[in-house]
């Protein structure tokens, strides 16, 4: 694990337009620091993130994928994130079969007002991916 200490993982974050993306924006405005390893792709709703999209992202060389959406009950689209809450954990269970550690995929919720929480989640996730190191794909 120690040889991974200097490794900067590449993480792709799918952030929903209404909560998490705005939350990331808020974190920036408030000058809250979090690792720059996460590169953000904006989607309208976390419900847009299909399992296939996550797998394609891993295939493109991402070491970790994080999906961030509105809290359950706060979804801009009423219940779009209910689907996310089912899909992503299901995919996590299956990732192991593909040789990808389930911890490389994370789902969490951050509202537009939760910049600090978002920074905390991303920091935590980045640390975990650093521990896991580079994702070796054949």
């Amino acid at each position: 694990m120690s040889e991974n200490n200097g490794y900067e993982p590449r993480i792709v974050g799918f952030l929903c337009n209404w909560c998490s993306y705005a939350g990331a924006d808020g974190a920036g405005t408030a000058r809250i620091k979090y690792p720059s390893n996460m590169r953000v792709v904006r989607v309208m709703c976390s419900g847009r993130v299909s399992p296939e999209l996550v797998l394609r992202t891993f295939r493109q060389g991402a070491d970790g994928v994080i999906v961030l959406g509105c809290h359950i009950g706060d979804c801009h689209y009423a219940e779009g994130n209910h689907r996310t809450a089912k899909r992503i954990p299901m995919l996590r269970n299956l990732l192991g079969y593909a040789g990808i550690h389930p911890d490389r995929l994370r789902l969490d919720w951050a509202s537009a007002a939760e910049g600090p929480k978002l920074a905390e989640i991303v920091t935590d996730f980045t640390e975990r991916i650093k521990e896991l190191g580079k994702l070796e794909t054949k």
Binding site: V49, S50, E52, Q60, R83
Partner: peptide, 26 residues
């Protein structure tokens, strides 16, 4: 409203969310 939940659910890739297509996101 363009949330794209249907796009993620479609196994046949028969629904496209304008401006947030799989190709654009990838």
């Amino acid at each position: 409203t363009g949330c794209g939940t249907c796009v993620a659910a479609c196994v046949s890739k028969a629904i496209v969310a304008e401006h947030f297509t799989d190709e654009q996101l990838v």
